[in-house]
């Protein structure tokens, strides 16, 4: 039962923050991917960096249970699936989490995204046995591999002799540094914010 309460609290916080950082706005996602406005990119990199540094420091200090970590396996399908997701992500401006969250904020296109997503997931369910038979899902580089060895876990490490916690803190700091180093935009001119914040006047035509 306590797990359900945690699911409600953490889930609600996640949805709330996703909306507040602008991730429920497909304009920000598309602008990030076309490198016109890197607001979300900087936000995401900083989030990964901050959570990583504190998490690995907490593991070192012994105040975070390493059993809570959950490393996913590496296999060819991770890259292929990532690329497929990237195509849809760019076209629609939504990913699974932000699509659902955006639908809740009243975006109608996000409802269509969600419906397509449910169908896509169902299609994969139907194709799974075939996909598995192609070998695309076979683990590579040890499978559930992390960069360094994380104490208290069984995950194989890419750099066996190195402390996974130290690498984690360093990588986290790198993410933070990149978040700060990235410019607001890499292409186009004018103010980055204009891209998605001010709906054009003609936008009113749309709702009819």
């Amino acid at each position: 039962m306590s797990h359900i309460i945690l699911a409600v609290v953490i889930g609600a916080a996640f949805g709330f923050v996703l909306d507040r950082v602008g991730a429920t706005n497909p304009g920000y996602i598309i602008s990030m991917l076309r490198l016109g406005n890197l607001h979300l990119m900087k936000t995401i990199l900083l989030a990964i960096g901050v959570s990583s540094v504190i998490m690995f420091a907490g593991l070192l200090a012994g105040i975070i249970d390493p059993g809570h970590l959950d490393i996913k396996a590496a296999y060819l399908g991770v890259f292929l699936g990532g690329a497929l997701l990237g195509v849809g992500f760019a076209a629609a401006g939504y990913c699974p989490g932000t699509g659902l969250a955006a639908a809740a904020t009243g975006r109608k296109d996000a409802l269509f995204f969600t419906a397509g997503g449910l169908l896509g997931a169902a299609a994969y369910m139907g194709h799974f046995a075939w996909v598995e038979s192609t070998g695309t899902l076979e683990s590579m580089a040890g499978g559930k591999t992390t960069l360094g060895k994380i104490a208290g876990t069984e995950y194989p490490a890419l750099f066996e002799g190195m402390s996974g916690e130290t690498i984690g803190i360093v990588m986290g700091l790198v993410f933070i540094a990149v978040a700060f180093a990235l410019p607001a935009r890499l292409r186009g001119e004018g103010k980055a914010e204009r891209t998605v914040q001010a709906p054009s006047r003609t936008a009113d035509v749309v709702k009819r």
């Binding site: 292929l80 990532g82 939504y94 995204f113 969600t114 397509g116 997503g117 994969y124």
Partner: peptide, 18 residues
């Protein structure tokens, strides 16, 4: 948006996450 959703979720399941 619908087609994008289809590709995104198919890809996410193939990858094992999003």
């Amino acid at each position: 948006a619908f087609a994008g959703g289809f590709i995104v979720l198919y890809g996410a399941r193939l990858a094992g996450g999003c």
